[in-house]
Simulated scan of single mutants.
Amino acid sequence: MTFLAPDHRIMNQPNRITNKDFEGWVQERGLYFPEKWNDNFTPILGMNDAGEPMTKGSLLVGKYGDGHIVYTGLSLFRELPAGVSGVYKLLANMLSLSIEKEPIKQQDEERKF
């Protein structure tokens, strides 16, 4: 696994994704990786088997309005039931991609302890 955009939010928040998160993946890692895409998309991961060319379309992220579009050909349907912890971390990052973190604000005096 090659991280093409290691500083991208999807690789770091709320979970930092590392190569260790791809250990233990079962069967194929993914299918249907596009070979080209619009310039609005950022390729996040590159992958290849030994002696094979790298594919860069397994995880693509693009901004759309206030949110994001995420395309993945990764076989999450195989990894989730197998209990691979890295896939849960990556999925959480995908789902929270457009959530902006805000500081916790004190609502009123009664909430102070």
Score class of each variant (00 low, 15 high):
residue 78 R to Y: 01
residue 70 V to M: 06
residue 25 W to N: 03
residue 57 G to A: 06
residue 58 S to F: 02
residue 4 L to P: 00
residue 89 K to F: 04
residue 17 I to P: 04
residue 97 L to G: 06
residue 4 L to M: 08
residue 80 L to V: 14
residue 43 P to M: 02
residue 31 L to Q: 11
residue 58 S to L: 09
residue 70 V to P: 05
residue 79 E to C: 03
residue 84 V to P: 01
residue 51 G to L: 10
residue 55 T to M: 13
residue 7 D to I: 04
residue 105 K to S: 14
residue 39 D to W: 00
residue 85 S to L: 13
residue 30 G to F: 00
residue 47 M to V: 09
residue 9 R to P: 05
residue 63 K to N: 07
residue 25 W to I: 09
residue 93 N to V: 08
residue 50 A to T: 14
residue 95 L to I: 12
residue 92 A to P: 01
residue 38 N to G: 02
residue 78 R to L: 05
residue 56 K to R: 15
residue 25 W to R: 04
residue 79 E to R: 08
residue 112 K to I: 15
residue 58 S to R: 00
residue 64 Y to H: 12
residue 47 M to I: 11
residue 64 Y to G: 02
residue 96 S to R: 15
residue 30 G to K: 00
residue 88 Y to H: 13
residue 110 E to H: 12
residue 51 G to F: 13
residue 96 S to V: 04
residue 26 V to G: 00
residue 67 G to Q: 10
residue 42 T to A: 08
residue 100 E to W: 03
residue 78 R to P: 00
residue 67 G to D: 12
residue 61 V to A: 09
residue 109 E to W: 11
residue 39 D to Y: 01
residue 71 Y to S: 06
residue 55 T to A: 14
residue 14 P to N: 13
residue 94 M to S: 03
residue 47 M to Y: 13
residue 3 F to L: 10
residue 71 Y to R: 03
residue 97 L to P: 03
residue 80 L to H: 07
residue 81 P to W: 04
residue 52 E to R: 15
residue 54 M to G: 03
residue 103 P to T: 11
residue 45 L to A: 01
residue 112 K to Y: 13
residue 90 L to K: 07
residue 20 K to G: 14
residue 24 G to R: 09
residue 102 E to W: 06
residue 71 Y to K: 03
residue 103 P to Y: 10
residue 111 R to N: 15
residue 28 E to D: 07
residue 57 G to F: 03
residue 106 Q to W: 08
residue 76 L to M: 14
residue 48 N to D: 08
residue 32 Y to I: 10
residue 68 H to K: 08
residue 36 K to W: 05
residue 76 L to W: 07
residue 1 M to H: 10
residue 39 D to F: 01
residue 28 E to I: 02
residue 51 G to Q: 12
residue 53 P to E: 09
residue 44 I to S: 05
residue 44 I to V: 15
residue 42 T to G: 08
residue 21 D to Q: 14
residue 109 E to P: 07
residue 37 W to C: 09
